[in-house]
Write a protein that binds this DNA or RNA. Structure first.
Length: 109
DNA sequence: GTCTTGACTAAGC
DNA sequence: GGCTTAGCCAAGA
């Protein structure tokens, strides 16, 4: 086998690795993009995590809502649909929003 | 191969 | 406390 990778490019595998890492976030907890990147063994690739989640295939069971920006706030504008969905899912898991922000010392990893 | 874009982050004002 | 700037690094055009 030479480096020939059929059916999945290098980036696709990186995305899957990120998705798999996100799946390890326990229910009722949250992690920052940078944290996920580090857990996936890609320090300083926070933006890549965002790209991966954006490319997330429809119907996947990846808990993308547990990934938030550093500072404990969602990476979406508060008036966006994604924001409401994320907040709804998190609150359903017991995560409390305080002034639109999540307490990392309490719900972080 | 270069340039722009982005579900990031930390520091500065 | 909120907006701006700069640094970051890979994907997409």
């Amino acid at each position: 086998m030479r480096g020939k990778r059929s059916t999945s490019s290098r980036t696709e595998q990186a995305f899957r690795h990120i998705w798999q890492t996100v799946k390890t976030i326990p229910r009722g907890r949250v992690a920052a993009y940078g944290e996920v990147a580090q857990m996936a063994g890609m320090p300083r690739r926070a933006r890549l995590v965002g790209t991966a989640l954006r490319n997330l295939p429809d119907g996947s069971r990846v808990p993308w809502h547990r990934v938030i920006a550093a500072g404990g706030k969602p990476a979406f504008p508060p008036d966006s649909r994604a924001y409401r969905e994320q907040r709804k899912k998190l609150e359903a898991e017991g995560v409390v929003f305080i002034n639109g922000r999540i307490d990392f010392s309490r719900y972080g990893l």
